[in-house]
Amino acid sequence: MKKRSGLGLILVGIALGVGCGGQPGGEGPEGAAPGTAGEDRKVTFYLVPKKKGLPYFSSCAEGARAAAAALGNVELIYDGPTDGSPEKQAAMIETFALKGADVIAVSPNDPDVVGPAMRKAREKGVHVITWDADGVADSREFFVNQATAQAIAYGMVDTMVRDLGGAEVSADVAIVTAYLTAANQNIWIEHMKERLASSASQLNLVAVKPSDEDQKLAFSVTQDLMKAYPAIKGFFGISSVSFPGAAEAVRQAGKTGEILVTGLATPNSMRSYVEDGTVKSVVLWNTAELGYLTVLVGEALATGTLSAGATEFDAGKLGKKKVEGDQVILGDIMVFTKETIGDFDF
């Protein structure tokens, strides 16, 4: 009996040990509560993406790590929900706040769900900022804004209009989104509809279909849409999974050049489609700079060099950045085309 339970304990030890092995040398901060500021205390900085495991966020994290290394006094931890669940994101924010974070930078996957947790963290004295996507009012101090939801949506519609030949061209288009309930995508869709209905375009939106963050489903949904609506001339793939899925469907149907696909994704995953013309433009921004700026803003808040009411922020190697109200502006969205995509590798 004894032998068996001993064996069991060893096994548990191994299981937990494997866990330890997965993480080289205790990266986590050693439970320093906020307010225990010492001489050279590091700023504990949690960078929370909407979903971990997306190259988009990984490339942002690269930039953030570079900023942490440049500053020297920032202990950066990058973690978010692997499955992109807003509830889990909220739970993680609560954990980080309890653990003694100084700054939590969140890209809220669903501002409504994550909002209360962010407010609670602020009550605990944690500096909460948003990056990549904004949260609800008074849940954060600053928003590091690379592009508003409106700018992203308009940018996608405008590139589609331009690539199809101008504002007077009329054609059918469809959107392949992530989940029907995906908060960010739904805001973009609202703005896209607004732009499509305006005089800037003659495009006619025939369908919005979910791909449930499954590239294969995005692929088959696009195949079906092409056949069910033969007049479709353009697809918007508005998540980093649905974009390559939709582009692949168009390419395999032999419609490269006839049907255009555009959307949001990192250059690497779309490179081959841009090169063969299935995709003319990929809308994005400089992700590494976004991560870099986020860390700088958070650190400045924690050390008191940035506070509400500032109009300009010195972002080191990025130069001076404009502060509008409670938003630090990174710059415009970028459009990658055949000519420029070769210069980027992320």
Binding site: G53, T82, K216, V241, S272
Partner: peptide, 15 residues
């Protein structure tokens, strides 16, 4: 099925 698409993402096969 994986090579049907040009990108292998981390959510492949979920569900």
């Amino acid at each position: 099925s994986a090579p049907q698409l040009s990108v292998i993402d981390s959510g492949f096969g979920t569900g």
